[in-house]
Amino acid sequence: MNDLFNITTEEEFQAACLETFQYQYKNVEVYQKFVDFLGKNPSEVKKIEDIPFLPIEMFKNHQVLDKIFVSAQTDKSTSYFQSSGTTQMLNRSKHYIADFNLYEESIYKSFEKFIGKPEDYIFLGLLPNYSENPHSSLIYMVDFLMKKSAKPENGYFLYNHQELFELLQKLGKEDKKVILFGVSFALLDFLDSITSDFGLRTSDFIVIETGGMKGRKEEMTKDELLKILQKGFGTDKIFSEYSMTELLSQAYSLGNNEYECPHWMRVLIRNAEDPFSYLEDGKTGAINIIDLANRYSCSFIATQDLGRIEKREFENEKFQVLGRIDHSDIRGCSLLVS
Rank of each mutant, 00 (worst) to 15 (best):
L164W: 02
A15D: 10
E57Y: 02
H62I: 00
Q304C: 07
N91M: 00
I301D: 02
H95F: 10
D66P: 04
S137F: 06
H62A: 03
Q14N: 13
I68E: 15
D236E: 15
S149R: 05
H161D: 12
G234P: 01
G182L: 06
R270Y: 13
S84T: 07
T284N: 07
R331L: 09
N271R: 01
K60R: 11
S136F: 12
A302L: 10
N271T: 04
I51V: 11
Q320F: 00
Y96P: 08
S184C: 08
S131M: 06
G125R: 06
S299G: 14
K94T: 02
I48G: 07
G323P: 04
I330C: 04
E313L: 12
I206N: 02
G307C: 03
K151Q: 13
P134M: 14
P152H: 01
K231S: 13
I7S: 07
A272N: 11
S79P: 09
L167T: 09
Y121V: 10
S93F: 04
Y103A: 14
V321W: 04
T87N: 04
S277L: 06
T8I: 06
E12F: 05
V45C: 09
K46N: 15
S131Q: 12
D329M: 11
P55K: 00
L138H: 07
I97E: 08
T210I: 10
I289M: 12
D189P: 09
S277H: 11
T20Y: 00
W264M: 03
A272K: 14
L167N: 03
Q73R: 10
S328A: 14
G172E: 02
D236Q: 12
E317L: 00
F13E: 04
L138E: 05
E105Q: 15
A150D: 15
D189Y: 13
T245A: 06
N288C: 15
F144L: 06
A186R: 08
A251G: 13
K231Q: 14
L171T: 10
K227L: 13
S71W: 00
F69L: 05
P275R: 11
K109F: 12
S277Q: 11
G255Q: 12
E119N: 05
G85A: 00
D50H: 13
E209I: 03
N27L: 00
E105K: 15
Y23G: 01
K283G: 00
N271Y: 03
L102N: 11
L306P: 05
E174C: 00
F314H: 03
V28R: 02
I287W: 08
F185T: 08
V337I: 14
V142P: 01
F34Q: 01
D329L: 10
L306Q: 05
L279C: 08
H263V: 01
N160D: 15
G255T: 12
Q14V: 12
D99A: 07
Q73E: 12
D75W: 08
D143Y: 14
I238L: 09
L322S: 08
P152L: 08
L138F: 15
S106T: 04
F314M: 08
I269D: 07
I269E: 05
T284Y: 00
I107H: 01
M244G: 15
I206R: 03
P118I: 04
Q162I: 10
E219K: 10
N133W: 05
P134D: 02
